[in-house]
Design a protein around this nucleic acid. Sequence first.
DNA 1: CGTAGTTAAATCGCATACGATTTAATCGCA
DNA 2: TGCGATTAAATCGTATGCGATTTAACTACG
Lengths: 143, 143
Amino acid sequence: MSDTLPPPQMLCFALYSAAHAMQAAYRPLLEPLGLTYPQYLALSALWAEDGQTVGQIGAALMLDSNTLTPLLKRLEQAGWVTRRRDAADERQVRLTLTEAGRALREKAAAVPGCFLERTGLVLPEAAALRDEVAALRDRLRPR
Amino acid sequence: MSDTLPPPQMLCFALYSAAHAMQAAYRPLLEPLGLTYPQYLALSALWAEDGQTVGQIGAALMLDSNTLTPLLKRLEQAGWVTRRRDAADERQVRLTLTEAGRALREKAAAVPGCFLERTGLVLPEAAALRDEVAALRDRLRPR
DNA sequence: CGTAGTTAAATCGCATACGATTTAATCGCA
DNA sequence: TGCGATTAAATCGTATGCGATTTAACTACG
């Protein structure tokens, strides 16, 4: 049971390869918008709640500032967001959508539906699989 | 339905974050062996069948030579494998486990069991989830 | 009030991923 | 048989991820 298995039989490899396939499926949807998948995730977090700090976005995406700082700087360079130190706590950097960043939300509105269609799942099935995978993730995360 | 959702509600984010959590869970298991997770996958492919070409390993792991070549060179540097051009077809590079590379398999034998335990799943549950996630991956891959 | 301890980002280094291109070897077909 | 098309790796450039460290700002407590 704890023997060596070829990659196709490993649960971990299913997750690994499915995550890659998911990003590949998003690429043609996001490339016209000039976004990578992680950039799209960061913007989604801001579309849900604007004005979050690097740390808050990191908590939402489960990423640290070593990954987010360069990514958010690229979003700033692209003109989607502004980065400003919080006046009340200068340690924190707060991200705010620009007018273009808010407008991008409309242009990206069709993306989730297109992706769902690509999955071949109907919404309840997708939600069920999402919950199963998220539950596994949460069990794997250190307590 | 095709509106903007916060990351935690997206199936894609569940996959994305679960894949990261999976690699994080593997890290303490593989670090003592001096392996990264993708390196462990490549070795697993060779443990299943030694002497594969870069392309064959790439087909198994769904990776291209732009990713694999540097990774396999690091495995060579570490002394786990040798890289040799195929005599019959000089375009191909064939990977062969060294004695140390074969021995490493024993040292890594406990890894899958440790990971399975961390998932909180019993084997049939893990296999079922693996199949569901792999089926999603295969539907997402371009025909 | 001062400073040690903590916290939030940023920085650094290394290892993936992957699109695009290049190089070298083999193949197909007139 | 000869050469254009195809194939397999390698190379190049950019964008993540993440461990480890650094820097700057805030907090707590004597």
